[in-house]
Design a protein around this nucleic acid. Structure first.
Lengths: 350, 350
DNA sequence: GTTAGCACTCTCATGCATTGAGTGCTAAGC
DNA sequence: GCTTAGCACTCAATGCATGAGAGTGCTAAC
């Protein structure tokens, strides 16, 4: 049995109809709604073939047919690269081109993505451990606490509050900040923590300066805290959107799904199983996780200086409006790239 | 008709039973489960009285009776102040006594509160506008961006990134930070923004110093950004917990509830309608919001230096395990107070 | 004042027949 | 040989009747 253009037309019609209504479609429906110039009986024959080929299945004898994961895959592949970004203006307006804090950008992007698609959106924040440090600044808070502000080379900023055993005189903090910046800028966060730990410590310890003792006191706390800071951050939005879809009218199913996507760790490892292309689509059974066997996942990346620094994604039922969702995911990722480029790229290096 | 001790015993038995099972309770059930030494028929008479008094109602003739909001109110009032905090160790362990960032404390508190109660928890973060500033520190980010770190007198820290028109030389930033701290520390954030805006501006403009021009450039941006920072922050957790309760098996009801509590603004204004006691309870129809007519809200406050700075709350069905929830809300609020006292109070003033 | 007995009410689950959508097959038509 | 009208068949969904079960109110006896 081989696919031909008429089978293809019918398959697409079935998929579109099913995506619209969520109801199994029969031969008469297709014949009436689309004017293919062939009778329901003929369509029945073709549908029977498509079923044999694994593109359709019947929930039960007297229902119509619904597309299989294979059919969605075929459909999505046939859409190809033709899908254009859309809603660009809406997205830009909502996300704001001028955004200074990357966290806000990610949060807003997750929100607009879930609002546009009506599905659940996720955004994996950039991991900082591979990022290089540009500057340290210590700020006194109380007698036994200092704030360590870290400015990364990509202009992302992180705060760590460090509790000291011995207070460091306030007037020494600027001097120490300067030394830390001199000695440590350009290193990756993870290197400061691991490999270079000893080297750096020695180098800094050897400083002939009045603040030597204060630094000695500070360093261990700093190293301990740097890594805590870097757990992967995840933004999500529209988790309860799925309650609007008939496939989750079964509450136990909805709960299973929600408890999966509410678990930060499962979602993060889910993101690690998908590809790393600019756009990846994972349909139903293609997902590694049992809990997502009825869901599709559309992911894209966002970049800084050409390097992927994070991922965004939308999860919805396999009966998903792929065309639109793909286009929106593309748009949001493009817009994010543009904004990140503008606000955080190397061009802005001091 | 007047309440007597037997009626009271029966009413409490009915409420407890209904809280446990969520099923209307009949006279035989009470007679069997509790050994009151009276027959179902007698209980029936008493129940009939209680119904007349407005404490019970029947969903339909052949069902048992369920408590009204008035009954819950009576029940809760009769619990009085006797309820003791519980789960203290669990809470402390989870929240961590040593917490440096208040945001983390709030997030963790919301989580443990929803996990313990199995309902939805909320925490309203402290508003900063009434808080006084302790220190400013500017940190260079790029040539056209500086980071303004604000340390409040309660040791809460906020970052604002300010985009400049004219770059400020890096070596002037520490000097400017010092001037800003000298001139502005002790003022409330809102005063810096509003009333004192002009005065402060003039005072700072009058500084005879080489950095005068830089400050003139900075101030307008700073003032514009200060207020943005202060939208009320809300943490919530366990929103989907309600799906576990039979009263929300009706999906449309669940959706109505979820879309209400997912809307930050409704929740914040809801918190503004409840009392400001250490503990407030709002049962079913006592709530101002139509969407909460079947829900109860238990709120408490948390304090810093004896002044209420925020609220915490739990929302669940009116058929709520009041005794336990009240006790847990009390515990969490107590633990928060303790931690805040330890880590953020005036005692830690420099 | 308490309680056993009883008629009554109402929901819920079950079973059964009906309906309707959809299919596959066959035979006739182009 | 492809297309299609006709028809028997299947199966979920719907509606309806029925009985069981839980609970009540009332009455009369204790």
């Amino acid at each position: 049995m081989v696919m031909n253009s008429r089978k293809m037309k019918i398959l697409k019609a079935i998929i579109n109809s099913y995506i619209d209504n969520g109801e199994a479609v029969g031969s008469r429906t297709i014949s009436k709604r689309y004017d293919f110039g062939i009778s329901p009986a003929t369509i029945r024959n073709e549908m029977s073939d498509l079923e044999e080929m694994g593109f359709l299945l019947r929930p039960h004898t007297s229902a119509g047919r619904i597309p299989t994961d294979k059919a969605y895959r075929y459909y999505v592949d046939s859409l190809g690269e033709k899908i254009l970004p859309s809603h660009i203006n809406e997205i830009r307006k909502f996300i704001q081109i001028e955004v200074n804090e990357i966290d806000l950008l990610l949060k807003n992007s997750a929100r607009i993505l879930s609002q546009l698609t009506r599905y659940t959106s996720f955004i994996v924040a950039p991991q900082l451990k591979k990022t290089r440090v540009k500057r340290f600044q210590l700020v006194p808070v109380t007698s036994d606490k200092v704030l360590l502000v870290i400015v990364m080379q990509n202009n992302i900023i992180r705060n760590i509050i460090i509790k000291l055993n011995k207070p460091i005189p306030g007037d020494q903090l600027n001097r120490i900040s300067k030394i830390l910046t001199e000695k440590l800028s350009g290193y990756r966060l993870e290197d400061i923590n691991k490999n270079l730990k000893r080297v750096i410590t020695e180098e800094i310890y050897s400083i002939k300066d009045s603040v030597n003792m204060a630094i000695r006191d500070l360093i261990p706390y700093m190293i301990g805290n740097l890594m805590d800071m870097d757990d992967i951050n995840l933004y999500s939005d529209g988790i309860t959107n799925i309650l609007n879809f008939p496939e989750y009218n079964d509450l136990s199913k909805a709960k299973e799904f929600i408890s999966f996507i509410e678990d930060k760790n499962s979602v993060i490892s889910m993101f690690q199983t998908v590809g790393t292309h600019d756009l990846d689509i994972s349909i139903g059974s293609e997902n590694m996780y049992e809990e997502l066997r009825d869901s599709s996942l559309i992911t894209a990346t966002y970049k800084l200086n050409g390097r992927t620094i994070g991922k965004i994604g939308v999860i919805g039922p396999t009966r998903m409006d792929y065309k639109n969702v793909i286009s929106m995911v593309k748009s949001v990722s493009n817009t994010m790239n543009e904004i990140i480029e503008k606000n955080f790229s190397d061009k802005n290096k001091e």
